[in-house]
Design a protein around this nucleic acid. Structure first.
Lengths: 142, 142
DNA sequence: TATTGTTATACTCTATAACTATA
DNA sequence: TATAGTTATAGAGTATAACAATA
């Protein structure tokens, strides 16, 4: 056997994840964004006004680790903070942020089109169902 | 929409991978092993005498980063090094390593059985084909 | 009391460069 | 010249603890 771990779903899942993320990383680097930055831009586009903590819970990133991410995007004037109450602040895409979000969407779309094109047609429709099933199965066990 | 990124295969792939790996991490912690340690034990069981560099290429871990992994397992007397020539050394499971490998196999098997049991039966047979397709699609694009 | 944002910090994982000894 | 193993180091990502201000 060439790769003795190739029959282990968990192992293949991780290898696939790393390989796919690597490709996306390259594409997003063209926009000077990391994958996590891009995901936050997409969250803010879909849920404008969400707080930093809420976004962190959605992405499974802890409060403390959201700080440098938000600061980085704010420093580039891609996002804005507006006070909600004394302790919370809603996050919004700035006009530049909306513009860059469109580029992100395009890169993500091209990336995924490229991936799906390299997968046998009969399997394509199974990709998302299988991934969601694995995700929810793993979370149920935890 | 609850999670605006739930339609992105790459995102769901990463979330699924992290969730699955988290569960495996907990199980292997019972054996005081990290996932990468367990994967190396399985490689050595399947390919005794493989060199450190070859194992690294198989697992996509760079030479330099293999050093602490091998040192950790050797310090626990789970693996042995035998010189092949002046610069290479074959790696082998020690008797204790073989014993622990059996425990690793059992934990991995239970982990994956638990996962598959939480997935709709009709989807189970698609899991490995989809993951391999994603892996090889991503590597083709790179 | 619980939550938000923050700081500081530590640990793991990964990446690169350089060195030696050998092929 | 190329490869194996190694060292040192830097960069990410992630985890915990603590604090002030506010709900």
């Amino acid at each position: 056997m060439r790769d003795p771990l190739a029959n282990l779903p968990g192992y293949v899942l991780r290898r696939a994840s790393n390989a796919v993320l690597g490709g996306l990383h390259q594409r997003l680097a063209l926009l000077e964004l990391r994958p996590v930055d891009a995901s936050l831009l997409m969250i803010l586009h879909a849920k404008p006004g969400i707080t930093q903590s809420e976004a962190g819970r959605l992405l499974e990133i802890q409060r403390a680790n959201m700080v440098p991410i938000v600061a980085r995007l704010e420093a580039r004037e891609l996002i804005e903070r507006r006070r909600v109450d004394g302790r919370s602040q809603g996050l919004y895409l700035s006009p530049q942020g909306e513009g860059l979000h469109a580029d992100v969407r395009a890169q993500v779309q091209q990336h995924e089109d490229g991936l799906l094109a390299a997968i046998e047609p009969g399997l394509r429709a199974q990709v998302l169902p299988v991934l969601h099933a694995l995700w929810s199965a793993a979370e149920k066990l935890a």
